[in-house]
Design a protein around this nucleic acid. Sequence first.
DNA 1: CATGAATGAGCTTTCATTCAT
DNA 2: AATGAATGAAAGCTCATTCAT
Lengths: 202, 202, 202, 202
Amino acid sequence: MAEQDLSGPRTTRGERTAARLRMAAREAFATTGFVGARVEDITAIAGVSHGTFYTYFDNKSAVLDSLVELASERLLHVVDESWEGEDVWATVHDVIARFVDALAEEGDVISAWIEAATNDQHFRDELRIVRSQYTEAVAGHLAPVLADTRHDPGVAAGALVAMVEGYTVDRLAVAGSEGRSSAVHTLATLWVGGLIRMSSDR
Amino acid sequence: MAEQDLSGPRTTRGERTAARLRMAAREAFATTGFVGARVEDITAIAGVSHGTFYTYFDNKSAVLDSLVELASERLLHVVDESWEGEDVWATVHDVIARFVDALAEEGDVISAWIEAATNDQHFRDELRIVRSQYTEAVAGHLAPVLADTRHDPGVAAGALVAMVEGYTVDRLAVAGSEGRSSAVHTLATLWVGGLIRMSSDR
Amino acid sequence: MAEQDLSGPRTTRGERTAARLRMAAREAFATTGFVGARVEDITAIAGVSHGTFYTYFDNKSAVLDSLVELASERLLHVVDESWEGEDVWATVHDVIARFVDALAEEGDVISAWIEAATNDQHFRDELRIVRSQYTEAVAGHLAPVLADTRHDPGVAAGALVAMVEGYTVDRLAVAGSEGRSSAVHTLATLWVGGLIRMSSDR
Amino acid sequence: MAEQDLSGPRTTRGERTAARLRMAAREAFATTGFVGARVEDITAIAGVSHGTFYTYFDNKSAVLDSLVELASERLLHVVDESWEGEDVWATVHDVIARFVDALAEEGDVISAWIEAATNDQHFRDELRIVRSQYTEAVAGHLAPVLADTRHDPGVAAGALVAMVEGYTVDRLAVAGSEGRSSAVHTLATLWVGGLIRMSSDR
DNA sequence: CATGAATGAGCTTTCATTCAT
DNA sequence: AATGAATGAAAGCTCATTCAT
C-alpha cells in the first residue's frame, strides 16, 4: 500500500518520473475519482507507458497513499502552527485562512481519499486518524475557553472543523477560489461568534 | 437510471420485494460503499435471486437513485418545515435537531451518494442541486438577519449547513448516536452565536 | 483453491457445464501444461464464455485441484485394492496392471500436477502426501518379505513405485498404449525378481 | 536459445559474471521453478543489475539451456563410463552409484528442465533425446542378457532408468542425502534381481 | 415473476525484454 | 560492459447485465 521503499527510484530521472506520475494521478483522480481513474489514464497523462507505473508504485492505492501522506502532513502542520495572534479574532482568522488554503489546494486529494475510504479499510482508518488529530489540536486550543461550560471541546472542535472542511472542499472547490477571502471572513466570524456564545453557556 | 415505471411492481408481493431490495441495498452500501457492494451482495441480503434485482431496478445506480430520492425529500422537508419557534434559539435548536436526526438516519445513503458522485455525473448534479436547495432555504431565513452586514447569506448558510452535515455524517455516525442531543445543543449554540456576531459585523 | 462448495452448481445444467470445464481443462493441460494453458483456452474447448469458468472454479488452480483430487483417489484405491492373488507373481502382476492403467489414464493430470508443484506449495504438499500414501501402502505389503534383510521397505517401495510411475507417465505415455501389456509383464518381472533378490540379502 | 556466441564473454571478468549468473539461476530455479523464477530474482542473487543478464544470455530459456547442457553431458558420461566390474553386481552397483550421484547433484536442474518441457517444445525434445540416449546405452548393456527372453531391452532399460531417476530426483532429493548409499544398495539389488529373473523368463 | 447460469467488456498487475545513459 | 528505467503484450479475474428455463 505504501510507496516502495526498497525499489524506489535510484536516479534523478526516476525521481522525475515518479513525480510526474504523482501529479498525473492527482489530475486523474480530480477528473474521474479514485475508482474511475484507470492506471492507464494516469500513465497517459504522465506520458509514460502503462508498465512504468508499477516501477514506482505497488498498485493504484499506493499513489493515492503517497498523495494522502503529503496532504495530511500539510493539514496537520497548518493546524499546529502559530495560534499566537494579537487577539482571538486575529488568531482565528489567521488559522482559518491557512486551513482554507490548504484544504482548497488539497481538495482533489481529499475528495479521492474520502471516496476511497468507503471501500478500503486502510484509507478509512487513515482518514479517521488524521481528522481526529487536527480536531484534537483545535480542541486543545478551545479547552481553556470552554472550561466550566456545557460544551465539550471535542464536539465543538469537530463541528467547527467540519464546517471549514465541508465548506471549503465541497462548496468552495466547486465555485472556484475567487470568493475565498470573503468566505474566510464569514467562517472566522462564525467561529468567533460561536466561541463567545459557548463560553457563556454554563 | 430511474426506477422502472413500465415493468415496475404492480402487486403487493412485488412491492414487498422491491422494499426488501432497497433495504438490502442500503445495508450493503453502508458496509462496503456503492462501488464495493455487488448486486449479488444486495440480493443475498434481501434473500432473493441475483436476477430478481433487475425485475425491480434497471441497474445498480437505480436503487441508489431511489434511496437518494427518499433521502432528498426528507432533508428538504426538514429544512422547509416550521422556523416559527418562540425565539431564535428555540427555532434554530429545533431545526438543527430535526436536521441532525434526518442526516444521521440517512447517513449511509448520503455517504454512498457522495461516493457515487465522484464517478457519476448524474449523482454529482443531484447532490449539487439538493445541497443548494436546502442551503438556499436556510439562506432565505438568514437573509433578514444579515441584511446590511458584510456577510453573504449564501456563504453563511453554506458554512452552517456544512457544519451540521459534516459533523453528523462523518463524526457523529462514527461515534454512535448516544451523544446526539448534546451535539445538537453545541451545534445550535455555534449557529446562534455565529448569527449574532455576523449580524453586528457591518 | 478448492472447488467452490458454497456456490457450486445448483442445477443439472450447471453440473454439465462444470464437467465440461473439467474435461476441457484436462485437455488444455495435456496440450500446453498448467502454466501454458490459459483460462480462455479451457473455456474455448468447453464452448463456454470466459466468465463462465469463474462460476464454477475460484481460479485456475481450482480446476487442477479438482482433477488432482479425482486422480489421487483413483491411484490410492488401486494400490489399496486386493493383493490376494494365487501367488506372488499373480498378485504383483495384477497390482501393476491396475496401477499402470490408472497412471496411463491420469497421466495428463499427473504431469500438470508435477509441473504445478514447482511453483505452488499447495500442489507440492499434495504430491508429497499422495506419493507417500501409496508408497507406504506398498511398503506395508513388502515388509513381511523384507524382514531381517538389509532393505528398508520404504526405500524398496519408493523405488518400485518410482519405476512404475516414471515408466508409465514419462515413457509409455509418449509411446502410446499399444505396448502396455508387454510393459506390464516386464515391470512385474522386475518387481518380483527384485523382491526375491532382496529377500535373500541379509 | 543457446548461449550467445557472438557477444559472449571474452574476458575473465565476463566469465566470472556468466558463471555467477548460472549458479544464481540454478538456485532460483530450485527455489521457485523455471516459470516462478524471474530474471530479476536471478540477477539479485548474482548481485548484478537486471540488464546485465542479457549481456550473457539471450533470454531466460538460454540459462536453463546452458545448465541443461552441462547436466546432460554429465549424465550421459556417467552411463557411458566403464561397465567393466568384476561381476554383474559390482558393475551394476558402480554404475548406479555414479548415476545416483549425478542425478542427485543435478536434481534441481532436472526438475526445472522437466517443468520447462511442459511448455516448451525445445526442452521437451531435448529431454526425450537425452533420456533415450542413456536408456539406449543401458539397453545396449542389457541386450546380451535378455537375448531370447520375452523382454525388450528398451523397455527393461527404460523401467530401470525410470526407477533410479524417479527415486533419486523426486524421493531422495526431498529426504536429503544421508540415506544415499543404502538407497544405492537397494536400487542395485532390485536391478540385479530383476535382470536375473528376466534372463530366465523365456 | 423468480431463478441462477451465461456473457463479455474492462481493468489491474506481472515480467521478459529493450534501450538510453 | 553495466545499470536500471521504460516498454507493452499478456493473462487472470470481476461483476453488471442478459437470458433461457
